[in-house]
Amino acid sequence: MNAIEIRNLKKSFKGMNALDGFNMTVPVGSIYGFIGENGSGKSTTEKLICGLLVPTDGEIKLFGKDYTDPGVRARVGALIENPGCFPNSSVWTNLMMQALNLNLQNPEEEIRRVLKIVRMEGSASNKFKNLSLGMKQRIGIAMSLIGDPALLILDEPINGLDADGMRIMREILVDITKNYSATVLISSHILGELEKIATHYGIIRRGKMIQEITAEEMESRCRNYVGLNCEDKDKALSLLRKNYARVEQEEDKILVYDEEQPEKIVDYLYKNGVIINEIKKNKIGLEEYYLDLMKAQSKEGK
């Protein structure tokens, strides 16, 4: 079963199409990394799933049911843009309101549970407005976790966090999916962080899904390359371009794609009189993969 299934979704704002024939499939139990440029339609999609926007056309299904089904929506937790908390109320009051909103049997116990998950037990009595950005984001996560959600929708939850905040957030998200079997849809511009946790990816561009792949598929599609530094770069470049399909120069480095064995390059250049100072085998990451894909899309004029 899929946690989210979107077919031919359209949403326009004053005649401008934010989403145009958008499709998406998020399997149950996955951490789905939702990637795209600013204004590509990520937040619009998430708001539509949460029922905060009215779709112009198309179909949204959550766990096989229509997204307006109250039973399904009671199991959705969301952090869209910023936590929806009253600034002058305490953390406890804000969380209590969400627990009552979900009609939980034992709201106090549930609040203690979620505060423990996000490691904020000591901040329950603080006013929400007095918390730091990272703490606010964590309270937002705690709020979305109330009521044991089967689907978590997180819009840029790690934006503005420091390195430690990001690490904690990453650990929390992995913990949620492992121990609470929730499906997580997470959008972020910090692709390096996303790469560490996502099991699936969806790449959106100009309101259309251009690619959906699993982390394994991405891994296999991410090409190997050898980065090298040598004295006579021009000569090395011309030699390598004769033997390899894709050779690029990046600052003071030469990148040779699709070569598994660096020693072959060392041997070839040495025989042709080029001395290599430094050589390293690498694999392109999510960020490079995404940028490559965007470049290709731009070239195709999509």
Binding site: C50, G51, L52, Y67, T68, D69, P70, R73, A74, V76, G77, A78, I80, E81, N82, P83, G84, C85, F86, P87, M97, Q98, N101, L102, M143, G147
Partner: peptide
């Protein structure tokens, strides 16, 4: 209006579609 300005309506309408 505070429901809207604080963003609390997001939490309400996410779990209360009706």
């Amino acid at each position: 209006s505070h429901d809207y300005s604080s963003g609390y309506n997001k939490s309400i309408f996410t779990v209360h579609p009706k």
